[in-house]
Amino acid sequence: MLLYVPSALCLVGFCVGVVRDHRRLSNGVLLGLTVVFAVVAALLQLGSVKPGLSGDVAFGLLVTAAVAVVVLAGFLLANGVTMVRKEGRSLANLVSLGVGLALIVLIALLVAALVLHSRTLAAVAGTAVVLAGYVAFLFVCFLFYAALYQRLVFWRRGDFVVVLGSGLIGGSTVPPLLASRLEKGRKEHTRLSRRGRRPVLIVSGGQGPDEELPESHAMADYLVERGFPADLIEREDRSTTTEENLTFSQALMHTKNPASRCVIVTSNYHAFRAAITARRVGVRGHVVGAPTASYFWPSAVIREFIALVVHYRRLNAAILLVVLLGGLFLWWWGWPPTNHI
């Protein structure tokens, strides 16, 4: 049973982290490590009983992972084409296509290393696989914990509902993405009102250079036109980023109740990163996500993950450097041997 101690320790760390503050990416990493260590322990335990079977299982897992990479690459390429066709050729809309192409390049690099029997190429491919594995592990942790976060019930009460803006069509019209957030905000407001509260709904969004009015004003007009009480709406019309959305909205909340809590509404793909930002700026609130078009979701989720990687850039840069130096050292030491390529 000692084999499972690392997994158990990570699980305890995960539970403690969720109780202390569930708006942390480290909780997702601990959950991922719990699973990884448990699988490794199970394989080692199986190997001590049936050595041949454990090898077969490990090989099966490796083949499954390889097939999954190929399928994922094809899916991302197809999604990238759909994004360009429906949303245009902006850099943000090319994310899924770019990741799909990167996976194809990685596969081609591995095949070339095996076919050409080049030690240098094999070392480069091995280092690339380790880096890809690290990024894939982080992404899976982010993906599953972000989904779990939206199902947690902590902080699902509040004196305010804050709806984050996302841009306007034609400089004045609420687009479907933002309309989905506003409808979700209405539902959260209704849910809180049923509990005897009379929360204020804050619409948050400033005016972009190509917009005729602040996003928050268009958002408020959208709600009032559909019967929402105008006296329960506050406009935060200075923000241009998620951090500013939350910081300026918090200032409005503090003028009414310094100890207030809130429910923050954004799109489902953006919910977890918004929660991390809320924790960082000191907003006491839980984030809920509004539905997003299925074709838009993969690319948007990847963008959110990239933004988190950039946010923790020092740690990730250090790990990247260690992997690169490790690969260079092993190559210099003579790895992999040419007779094993």
Score class of each variant (00 low, 15 high):
228 F>D: 00
175 P>D: 01
175 P>V: 05
138 L>T: 01
190 T>M: 11
338 T>F: 01
197 R>Y: 06
80 G>H: 01
271 A>L: 06
136 A>D: 01
167 G>N: 07
277 T>Y: 05
320 L>W: 10
132 A>W: 02
251 A>P: 01
337 P>M: 08
318 A>H: 03
104 I>S: 07
260 S>V: 05
248 F>Y: 14
77 L>T: 06
200 V>S: 11
166 S>D: 02
66 A>N: 09
196 G>E: 09
163 V>S: 05
221 D>T: 12
61 L>T: 07
274 A>H: 05
7 S>R: 06
208 G>T: 03
318 A>W: 04
132 A>L: 05
154 F>N: 09
186 R>C: 08
285 G>N: 02
59 F>D: 12
337 P>H: 13
21 D>P: 04
291 P>C: 11
23 R>G: 06
148 L>I: 14
8 A>G: 10
11 L>P: 06
341 I>C: 08
143 L>T: 12
48 S>K: 10
214 P>C: 03
127 T>R: 08
123 A>F: 03
84 V>G: 00
10 C>H: 12
303 R>Y: 04
129 V>C: 14
15 C>Y: 09
199 P>F: 11
323 V>S: 01
15 C>K: 06
216 S>Q: 12
87 E>V: 04
212 E>D: 14
18 V>E: 03
256 K>F: 00
283 V>L: 08
225 E>G: 15
249 S>D: 05
50 K>W: 13
5 V>I: 15
78 A>R: 12
226 R>G: 09
242 T>D: 08
339 N>P: 00
186 R>S: 07
246 L>H: 00
292 T>L: 00
84 V>D: 00
104 I>Q: 08
7 S>M: 04
268 N>D: 15
30 L>G: 00
189 H>P: 06
223 L>H: 04
264 I>D: 04
314 R>W: 14
110 L>Q: 14
258 P>E: 03
320 L>M: 12
106 L>H: 09
66 A>T: 10
174 V>W: 03
25 L>N: 05
210 D>T: 13
71 V>T: 04
143 L>W: 14
215 E>W: 10
331 W>R: 13
111 V>L: 14
312 Y>P: 10
141 C>E: 00
188 E>L: 05
95 V>M: 12
159 D>M: 02
330 L>N: 06
95 V>I: 15
103 L>G: 01
312 Y>L: 07
10 C>I: 05
129 V>D: 11
257 N>Y: 00
304 E>A: 02
304 E>T: 03
230 A>D: 12
302 I>K: 02
167 G>Q: 10
274 A>M: 08
95 V>K: 00
162 V>D: 01
230 A>R: 14
95 V>S: 05
318 A>C: 06
67 V>I: 15
232 L>Y: 08
219 M>A: 08
20 R>K: 13
65 A>V: 14
199 P>M: 10
